[in-house]
Amino acid sequence: MSDVSSNTMDALPAEFADLLSSEFRGQRRIVVPADRLIEVLKTLKEKLGYDLLADLTCVDYLTYRDAQHRFGLVYNLANTETNQRLIVRCFLDDPEPTVPSAVPLWAGANWLEREVWDLFGIRFAGHPDLRRVLLPEGFASHPLRKDYPLQGRGERHNLPVITRAEG
């Protein structure tokens, strides 16, 4: 694979030995339970130098074959010194999927978490300002969930009409 980087991280430190970890195409991923998430992220940031939160997103596994959980959060970390990457996964389930917010660790998580809330309906406990970011306030669904249809539920037609006479 010369197309894309393959920065494998060295062995994880001992305190994470119990975490599930896997590798695909040179990318290391670890799975963290929700209650240990912040602790692990904090160690990664402060002790292991993963100082950049490159991305934060979510996947809805509702229709995925053999999936055990409904949602999977993806924290995409990078180390700006060594250019290693690490993907931290955290799985959640209905109802009321909630995880603690990462904003105290990275200010950049603010909008990323708002986006996940907006599109997937996952709550981030302790987030300073958890409002919708892309969709209008008052939108009823979370559109990137798999049970929401691509064409929507008619929201896009539900607007007032202006004719020449009124305009």
Partner: peptide, 12 residues
């Protein structure tokens, strides 16, 4: 879901 399917539905 979010794109208006033609503005002529709502304005002349």
């Amino acid at each position: 879901y979010s794109v208006v399917q033609g503005i002529d539905r709502f304005v002349p």
